[in-house]
Simulated assay, not measured.
Amino acid sequence: MTTKHALATNTLWPSLVHKALNGEGLTMEEGLSILEADQDQLLPLLQAAFQVRKHYYGTKVKLNMIINAKSGLCPEDCGYCSQSIVSTAPIQKYTLLDKDTLLAGAREALARKAGTYCIVAAGRGPTERELDQVVSAVKEIRETMPLKICACLGILKEDQAERLAEAGVHRYNHNLNTSKANYPSITTTHTYEQRVETVEKVKAAGMSPCSGVIIGMGETNREIVEIAFALRDLDADSIPINFLNAIPGTPLEHAGRTPAAKALKVLALFRFVCPSKEIRVAGGREVSLRTLQPLSLYAANSLFVGDYLTTEGQEVSADHQMIEDLGFEIELIAL
């Protein structure tokens, strides 16, 4: 049976559900079929993705909150980032926030019903002083608050990964961002391989690996499938799917918006490729998905609440209402 005929008769999606629930990997052709599906296949596709999502996560939604712990002052040239050395975007610039401010952020995460608090700092990698500050804050948060901690501090040395794990960091985020082939067109000051190496160090230290992608940076559909396969092979536990929010003053400021239907297909793709993993609809969802944001949770089981790094997110109350209106529930983290 050809892929085209399978799509026409709605038989491909059930077959992908069967494969996902039985540990069978998708082929490149099946991945491309998801991304290239006709518009009238969008709802059947999401229904199929929801069957897989429901099998592993029911109707629960994990909430995460980011604190921009260090803004700007970054020597890297990532073309999507307002904090990079090549960006002229008018953003706040400051060194690493003090411990009291990081603790206040953790309390805010609890108020927003987030189970995971993400401490993010721009830069190539943490200095020893910065690592000391993060470690001190993490230890106190772990002692006083029912939160999981995710750190995102750039490229890590092996001993730094071990220190973060010993302090109680549950998860470390280091996104692959795009395909290996597309990477040099996005960043030249570090390599795709260095990002993979950091994720491997995170795993070796005993932290849960979080690694994802930014859609809309000139990649082809084939490259989107390739990065989904790469994250599957890397065994990332949590996969944030970002959609480029083209910020004026960055090299990618003129990149087009990812249409809502395409964004939903991407989320479905990652659910089928990494069926048991946390798929998080992340930065840029408000820009790409717009009024179709609720549909994203039929494939994804996690999202960020509040603002991102230098861009604003949807109102937290709107996210809570969206989850309630879907008949879903916020997952409370058990430590």
Rank of each mutant, 00 (worst) to 15 (best):
Met1Cys: 12
Thr11Ile: 11
Trp13Cys: 09
Asn22Tyr: 03
Gly23Ile: 07
Thr27Phe: 14
Met28Cys: 08
Leu32Gln: 07
Phe50Cys: 12
Val52His: 02
Arg53His: 07
Gly58Ala: 11
Gly58Arg: 14
Met65Ser: 02
Ile66Gly: 00
Gly72Met: 02
Cys74Leu: 08
Cys81Phe: 06
Cys81Glu: 03
Ser82Trp: 03
Ser82Arg: 04
Val86Cys: 12
Val86Gln: 12
Asp98Asn: 15
Asp100Leu: 10
Ala106Thr: 03
Arg107Glu: 04
Glu108His: 11
Glu108Ala: 14
Arg112Glu: 09
Ala114Thr: 03
Gly123Cys: 09
Pro126Gln: 10
Glu128His: 12
Arg129Pro: 06
Leu131Thr: 02
Val135Phe: 07
Ser136Glu: 15
Ile141Phe: 01
Arg142Tyr: 12
Leu147Cys: 00
Ile155Ala: 12
Leu156Arg: 02
Glu158Gln: 09
Asp159Thr: 12
Arg171Asn: 04
His174Met: 12
Tyr183Pro: 04
Pro184Met: 13
Ser185Met: 11
Arg195Asn: 08
Glu197Thr: 07
Val199Tyr: 00
Glu200Phe: 09
Lys201Arg: 15
Lys201Thr: 03
Ser211Phe: 03
Ile214Met: 10
Met217Ile: 02
Asn221Phe: 05
Asn221His: 14
Ala228Trp: 00
Asp233Pro: 04
Leu234Thr: 04
Ala236Arg: 01
Asp237Ala: 14
Ser238Arg: 01
Ile239Gly: 02
Phe243Arg: 02
Ile247Phe: 10
Glu253Ala: 15
Gly256Asn: 12
Pro259Asn: 13
Lys262Arg: 14
Leu264Phe: 06
Leu264Cys: 09
Lys265Cys: 11
Val266Asn: 04
Leu267Arg: 06
Phe270Arg: 05
Pro275Phe: 04
Lys277Ile: 05
Lys277Asn: 05
Gly284Lys: 02
Arg285His: 09
Glu286Asn: 14
Ser288Tyr: 13
Arg290Val: 07
Asp307Tyr: 13
Asp307Thr: 10
Gln314Asp: 15
Glu329Val: 05
Glu331Arg: 15
Leu335Lys: 15
